[in-house]
């Protein structure tokens, strides 16, 4: 994959996750069909990767559902968790770290609902880490999307359990001394039956993986790497939103080679750089869901 093709939508024909749509004939306002307009303006910063991922979610939902009456979105606390309020569905903005506990109760109470959990790396892996591994172990039929921007954005850029070693944050002024979690591998080890990873610079790939996660029966988990420009980018002098997207692109060796001569990224080489992360579906298996084991399907009292 060359840089040019990575950064531009594919010109006709199905690209990675493109679902056959051509850029010349975009679905008119597909992304806006399920947007809760009363909640606008949104609170995401300019350049934030969350908006790209959220738009891809809306696009995927618009292609899949006529209405979201039977879809619930459950989120915790943080920048990523805020986006559920912008979806015109049953939306539940819970407490910090606990969306999976609410979602587990909701799904078992009403198994016919599609339940999507939106969480962040602080919400899902730090304060809510215990709930994440137990939700994966139970294999409740939930789809969990974890926006990983490697930092606490909403509270002002503090260290997260996903912050790469050496990176600067407001609570690691001398550089992060700790090692980050590999969220996807953690969740796979805990028993999730669908685990995938995407990144905000390839929203079409995320869209496809999100739809596959929705289709999967059991606990599905999509980690999506996004960028916090305001805190992670600024504190580590990594540039603006576009520069951070370039840094994601560098995970792909060919693009990295292409980018080697780019002056804007020379700085980056001297700074902590993310390890190369494997993208796509990382694990897929099948075992009974908790709802099945509890004989809850079609058994509403």
């Amino acid at each position: 994959m060359k840089l040019e093709s990575a950064l531009r939508p594919p010109a006709g024909g199905p690209g990675p996750g493109g679902a056959g749509r051509s850029p010349e004939e975009p679905e008119p306002s597909a992304e806006k069909r399920f947007l809760r307009h009363g909640m606008m303006p949104h609170m995401l910063c300019p350049g934030c990767g969350h908006g790209i991922v959220f738009e891809a979610m809306l696009r995927a939902l618009a292609g899949r559902y006529e209405s979201l009456d039977e879809v619930a979105f459950v989120a915790g606390i943080g920048c990523s968790s805020r986006v559920v309020g912008y979806v015109d569905a049953c939306t539940l903005h819970t407490t910090h770290g606990r969306p999976l506990t609410f979602a587990t109760g909701l799904k078992l109470a009403r198994p016919e609902l599609t339940v999507v959990v939106v969480t962040g790396d602080g919400d899902g892996l730090s304060i809510g880490g215990n709930h994440l591994i137990h939700a994966a172990r139970r294999n409740v039929d939930l789809t969990c999307v974890l926006f990983n921007n490697e930092i606490y954005g909403m509270t002002g850029g503090q260290l997260a359990p996903t912050t790469i070693t050496g990176a600067y944050t407001s609570t690691s002024p001398a550089g992060n001394a700790e090692s980050p979690f590999d969220a996807a591998r953690l969740v796979e080890a805990a028993g999730a039956t669908f685990v995938a990873r995407a990144q905000s610079y390839r929203p079409r790939d995320f869209e496809e993986l999100f739809l596959r996660a929705l289709d999967h029966k059991g606990f599905s988990f999509v980690e999506v790497m996004t960028d916090c420009t305001e805190y992670f980018g600024r504190t580590n002098r990594l540039g603006n939103g576009a520069d951070l997207l370039f840094s994601q692109a560098r995970m792909e060796p060919e693009i990295d080679a292409d980018l080697a001569g780019r002056p804007t990224l020379k700085q980056l080489a001297a700074k902590p750089v993310r390890p190369v992360l494997e993208m796509g579906v990382l694990h897929e298996s099948n075992r009974g869901t908790l709802e099945e084991a509890m004989h809850l399907l079609g058994a509403r009292s």
Binding site: V74, L92, T94, T95, R98, L100, T101, F102, A103, T104, G105, L106, K107, L108, A109, R110, L113, N130, H131, H134, M294, H295, L296, A299, R300, S301
Partner: peptide, 27 residues
């Protein structure tokens, strides 16, 4: 258990209350 009713032992009390609230919102 049976008749669509649910008993679940959660990982801690925080999770227990979260599940209770999610279930209550589910009716």
């Amino acid at each position: 258990p049976g008749r669509g009713a649910v008993f679940i032992q959660m990982e801690d009390e925080i999770a227990s209350m979260g599940a209770v609230l999610g279930a209550s919102l589910g009716g």
